[in-house]
Amino acid sequence: ETWDMPMAYPATNFHSENASQFAACVKEATGGALDIVTHAGGSLFSGSDIKRAVQTGQAPIGERLISAHANENPLFGVDSIPFLATSFADSDKLWAAARPQLEKVLADQNLVYIYAVPWPPQGFYFKKDVNSVADMAGIKFRAYNAATARIAELAGMAPVQIEAAELSQALATGVAEAFISSGATGVDSKVWESLTHFYDVQAWLPRNVVFANKDAFDALDDAAKKALTDCGDTAAASGAAKSEELTAGYLKTLADNGMTVSGPSEQLEADLAAFGTTMSDEWVSSAGEDGKAIIDAYRGQ
């Protein structure tokens, strides 16, 4: 059987490469009975459509940045609460606390959780020294979802809505002067052409989740199901390791191209931690009991 796997990011992205290895692993484990064909770069379905496509069986398996669906259910945004879990280790703890709930929510949507891999952590890009939140006042900050708009609001920055495709141009022309994203985005969009400072605040580590259509999954024999789960576990581990390894490389590339790369100053770190508390509370109030249980479990660890 052939499973087409739509993916949103370019073929050379580490998530896509990791998924190719996952596909090879499944093919080998099933002796070729289950052949997963990855379609990178949104060439089958665009990122925004992948979850629905898998839900409705338009594709049997797919990968999606799960926090993009936080409007639908706040639980999907658990990995993207700013300044709550600000390292690979903390992010893993948070994910472990949230995973049972998420698997249940996905199962209710006819989806089977296979594996998830974190993106490199999110940091601030600016074109000047920023040592505290006070330094951010009035800066034109790219907001692309509710959380980033809230960060702008809390920090007194002017939110400007810019789509990913226009980010480079917006930075070059000064439409936006700052944004928050991973080191990878900065390298990919050659951000040093427009901005000068990167602060590695590790605001959050969003995850790409790979899920299968439940009907398609249930129709497999036990050996194939086991292959998916086992290869998924392998892919989760290797993907996370790759993400961590790449993070250092991205920051080095930014620095090599003349950007000032550093951690947050003490003042900035304290200011941002306060945002973390505020935004976690806000998230809990929208996510309800399930959300509170996750945060309590995370903090209790």
Binding site: P10, T12, G41, D188, E193
Partner: peptide, 8 residues
Amino acid sequence: VTINESIT
């Protein structure tokens, strides 16, 4: 966007 090169 597809090949990750600077649009500018």
